[in-house]
Computed example of a mutant assay.
Amino acid sequence: MKLDQIDRKVLDILQANAKITNAQLSKEIGLSPAPTLERVKKLEQHGIIQSYHAQLDREKVGLGVTTFIQVSLTGHKKDVTDSFARRINEIPEIIECHHITGSGDFLLKVISKDIASYQKLLLECINEIEEVANTQTMVILSTFKESKVLPIPY
């Protein structure tokens, strides 16, 4: 699907406020409500808009520690990678998993209640995955920018 300027504006607005009403969205993009709704539905049907989420305050829900873990695997064959990915997807505290280049194989973003719960997760879950050769943890001290908004190219 080729995106035009109006589609891009719709995406920018929805990323900033997914709770916006169709009436307000139509005013902001300069179309009537019916064609605005058609555009949003088309963006959803083509998989450009994949879902809508509530962004939570981690600390207010009791998740005070964020870490990145660089993981090296025991091998690089497809079955090793696939098995590791399946196991990682079973652990809810791992909110992101990226296959990377460099000295490690994967980069995990992990959210935990506190350091003790993180340590338990690392020792009893992640390091127990058969395909994990070693890990290196980076604890996030503070975050200066964290955005879920994609910069839509114009």
Rank of each mutant, 00 (worst) to 15 (best):
129 I>N: 06
74 T>V: 13
93 E>M: 09
136 Q>I: 05
112 S>T: 03
96 E>Q: 15
112 S>E: 04
84 F>H: 04
128 E>L: 12
89 N>C: 13
113 K>G: 00
75 G>L: 13
94 I>K: 09
69 I>L: 03
111 I>Y: 03
101 T>Q: 12
110 V>I: 02
117 S>Q: 09
109 K>F: 00
74 T>Y: 05
74 T>L: 13
106 F>K: 05
123 L>T: 02
91 I>Q: 08
115 I>D: 06
102 G>E: 09
124 E>Q: 13
74 T>M: 13
66 T>S: 14
102 G>V: 07
92 P>L: 09
104 G>L: 07
75 G>V: 13
63 L>M: 10
77 K>W: 04
121 L>P: 02
76 H>E: 15
125 C>S: 14
87 R>M: 14
79 D>T: 13
66 T>C: 11
68 F>E: 02
70 Q>W: 00
123 L>E: 08
85 A>V: 15
86 R>W: 03
95 I>W: 05
107 L>V: 10
65 V>R: 07
90 E>Q: 14
127 N>R: 10
110 V>N: 04
131 E>C: 08
91 I>S: 10
118 Y>R: 03
67 T>L: 00
89 N>R: 15
111 I>G: 02
124 E>C: 11
73 L>I: 05
132 V>G: 07
91 I>L: 12
129 I>W: 03
76 H>C: 14
118 Y>A: 02
100 I>E: 09
88 I>S: 11
127 N>Q: 09
104 G>Y: 08
118 Y>F: 11
66 T>G: 11
104 G>D: 03
115 I>F: 06
129 I>E: 10
67 T>G: 01
110 V>M: 00
124 E>L: 12
103 S>V: 01
88 I>L: 12
113 K>D: 03
106 F>W: 10
88 I>P: 07
78 K>H: 11
76 H>R: 15
95 I>A: 11
89 N>F: 09
111 I>M: 08
94 I>N: 06
128 E>W: 06
132 V>S: 07
71 V>C: 02
80 V>M: 06
116 A>Q: 08
104 G>K: 04
93 E>N: 14
65 V>A: 05
83 S>Q: 05
134 N>T: 10
83 S>N: 10
124 E>Y: 12
81 T>H: 07
64 G>S: 12
94 I>F: 07
65 V>S: 01
70 Q>F: 01
96 E>D: 13
64 G>W: 06
89 N>P: 09
96 E>K: 15
132 V>E: 03
64 G>N: 13
89 N>L: 14
69 I>Q: 01
69 I>S: 04
112 S>D: 03
122 L>Y: 00
130 E>T: 15
97 C>G: 13
100 I>P: 05
119 Q>M: 05
80 V>R: 07
128 E>R: 15
